[in-house]
């Protein structure tokens, strides 16, 4: 009797989770996968096949945009790690208990405004008649206004700014778990600062680094507004092409194929990243 009861409570506990995964993640993915395999012959006439994928691979614009998106996402992830690690280390290890909360809050502030507002913030700062350019002219540092928008560098800066928090949070939580005695032991046994960083801090923080990198990479590759708004005329981003397929071209079949391609390709990049750095999900993210 009590065993039935406990089984029932287990089912009840898991039901929302299973429903959520099933209805909001698996089912739509299955739908997308199904749609991506439909070939449009004419109005309301479809057959099954891989034509959408063949088209995707056959058109250099799509391939190159996907590669470009992945490459820039990797760059953004690397920059977020390089910039986020010292910040996370400071918050977790150096800052006092009381200022820690304030620092964390400061990192959170960008998340309080929407993507769109954040992007417009950058636009107001960086445009030709924007705050920075005008100020530089006024102080006589440059002779005439410069345009700082609409290039890859700006897109990367904007994306790093957007995602860096998702790098910092997992890093802080792993680094906070590190006993300071480990660092002191590292020095005591003869390690230089570099050795301690390379052989103790980084290996210890590896679960945080791996989860932070996966989150930031996925977020970046899937972002839409920031690259479009800051990149202007030179900002091909793969999500924009998916939007175009669905919305402006009414081509859901091809759009679905693009969606699947993005999912598969980003998963592949994550897998390759794990392999290259000799990590596995089991020893990092899933580690208790």
């Amino acid at each position: 009797m009590s065993r039935d009861a406990s089984r029932l409570s287990l089912i009840l506990l898991f039901a929302p989770f299973v429903l959520w995964i099933g209805l909001l993640i698996i089912l739509p993915q299955v739908g997308i996968g199904y749609t991506s395999l439909r070939e449009k012959i004419s109005w309301n006439e479809y057959s099954f096949g891989l034509k959408n994928y063949v088209d995707f691979l056959g058109e250099p614009v799509y391939r190159n945009t996907l590669l470009r998106t992945a490459w820039m996402s990797i760059l953004v992830t690397a920059l977020a790690l390089v910039m986020g690690f010292p910040i996370a280390y400071y918050i977790a290890k150096i800052a006092r208990e009381r200022s820690r909360a304030a620092l964390f809050l400061m990192c959170l502030i960008p998340l309080w405004v929407s993507d769109l507002v954040r992007a417009y913030g950058w636009i107001v700062l960086l445009r030709e008649t924007g705050v920075i350019s005008t100020a530089l002219v006024k102080w006589g540092i440059i002779n005439q206004p410069i345009e700082m928008l609409y290039n890859d560098m700006t897109v990367i800066i904007g994306l790093v700014y957007t995602v860096i928090l998702f790098m910092i949070v997992p890093l802080v939580s792993t680094l906070q778990g590190m006993d300071d005695a480990l660092l002191e032991a590292g020095y005591n046994l003869g390690g230089s600062r570099l050795t301690v960083l390379r052989r103790i801090i980084i290996p210890y923080a590896m679960p945080g680094i791996v989860s932070g990198c996966i989150i930031t990479f996925m977020l970046t590759a899937g972002s839409y507004l920031t690259p479009i708004l800051l990149g202007g005329k030179n900002s091909s981003w793969f999500t924009e092409q998916i939007y175009n397929q669905f919305i402006t071209r009414y081509n859901w079949e091809s759009g679905s194929a693009f969606g699947v391609a993005l999912l598969v390709f980003t998963s592949f990049v994550v897998w390759a990243g794990l392999r290259l750095t000799g990590q596995s999900l089991a020893t990092t993210v899933a580690k208790d």
Partner: peptide
């Protein structure tokens, strides 16, 4: 007519992706 938007979409993407 149907199909025109798809052709135009590809043209637009080519323009966007070109350097």
């Amino acid at each position: 007519p149907p199909g025109i938007e798809d052709m135009e979409g590809l043209a637009l993407e080519r323009i966007k992706a070109a350097n």
